[in-house]
Nucleic acid binder design. Sequence first.
DNA 1: CGCCAGATTGAACCCACTCAATACCGGTGG
DNA 2: CCACCGGTATTGAGTGGGTTCAATCTGGCG
Lengths: 238, 238
Amino acid sequence: MLDVHPAHDDPLQPLLDEDRQRPGALPATPDLEALIAGLPLRRRKLKAREYLFRAGESRHALYLIHAGFFKTSVASEDGREKITGFRLRGDLLGLDGLGMSSHACDAIALDVGEVWEIPNGVLRDRLPQFQERLTAALAAEIRRDWRWMLAMGTLGAEQRVVTFLLDFAERMQSLGFSSTHLMLRMTRAELGNFLSLKLETVTRALSHLQACGMLAVDGRQICIRDTAGLRAMVGEPA
Amino acid sequence: MLDVHPAHDDPLQPLLDEDRQRPGALPATPDLEALIAGLPLRRRKLKAREYLFRAGESRHALYLIHAGFFKTSVASEDGREKITGFRLRGDLLGLDGLGMSSHACDAIALDVGEVWEIPNGVLRDRLPQFQERLTAALAAEIRRDWRWMLAMGTLGAEQRVVTFLLDFAERMQSLGFSSTHLMLRMTRAELGNFLSLKLETVTRALSHLQACGMLAVDGRQICIRDTAGLRAMVGEPA
DNA sequence: CGCCAGATTGAACCCACTCAATACCGGTGG
DNA sequence: CCACCGGTATTGAGTGGGTTCAATCTGGCG
């Protein structure tokens, strides 16, 4: 048994509340939703494991995640596949296809979710000031990718898992959730795929970190017990 | 001894010729240089191993590579480093810093080179139609990064080296150079860093590919002998 | 209850890494 | 001219971390 914070058993609950205030909204990134809330945007609800779009499909819009948990992945012609990121509320989906007529990745809901559709035309005509924000979002994705490339190339298996957990905790916190009681929505295989590890290796890493007393693991429920210790493992400042 | 095509001993020669016509310029990507050639842009010449900019420095401009061979790299606080790409003529440097006041990576010339400086102000005021191209370039970088993440995560050492060589050959060809007689400008250590391999592993891969008759290797001169065979090794269509 | 996808754990294996020695190559100075 | 030198490249031998293969366990769900 594991004493996981019950408030996060279903993180979708608070997310689906559209009137929910975001007290900690960062001034540096004024809310995208506020910017487009007045527009008549189509909203799309997704079921768990449903595709939002697939690579190669023609691209009509960007999608702002309003609720839920998504993954994006790319695949090679011979079937190799790689998850390029896990996406949360506030993230934009479809950015990678800009400048192309079709999508460059698959986007899949890992849970029920909702996205706001921002059609290409609206982007051009109604949201000129949005352009700058768009380039910033794209550049941020590049920097994020580079940080992961650095991690994959220079860290061992356990360190990668730790890096993921710390990053995930930080993102959850910035959305107003606990930064210590995490609920992973992806399988070990998906997590391993993202970290360029096999699922058994992910399991072993988690088990070992639990044995060290730094985590409490119960399936997809993860409780971070020693943030400082984890930070130290990956060379981050305390 | 190795019969490397002598015309490419010094690829800078044709690149530095500003009046050089580009017969094969793709209509899909009308020349960036043409777009900005009329503007009074500052040009900066770099010596080999000179930094164009460093991560953290304040960001005044984008840089279009007009000649030469660059690498970009990111580093962690504890000294781990990763090369994020090798950049050629026509590539933009500094894209990753958009939306930030400082650069997010190091940009280093691996050879003498020249860049055209596109100040932030010019971007905003003089080149409105440039915005769309900018987002397209950013998205393209993301797709590129994702393809490499896929390669790193799913391919073995030798396959990664092959993937790099095929990609490099294609880029050189699109610039008007031979796609079979390649002159690498980076060390084995740098190539290994980019591919998340150790330099000895890169050397071994090259040696083995040479033994198989698919390459001829002489230091940084590489001659591709069996493109189809190499493609087959990485699951690419012939 | 039975089923099945997901998670865990163990044991053997293998690919890439590490350590080390040697060769090479361009430049520099005696 | 050659001897020397530092940086780079190559090759070998041994090691190890992550994979592979396989067995077991768990929990949700029809």
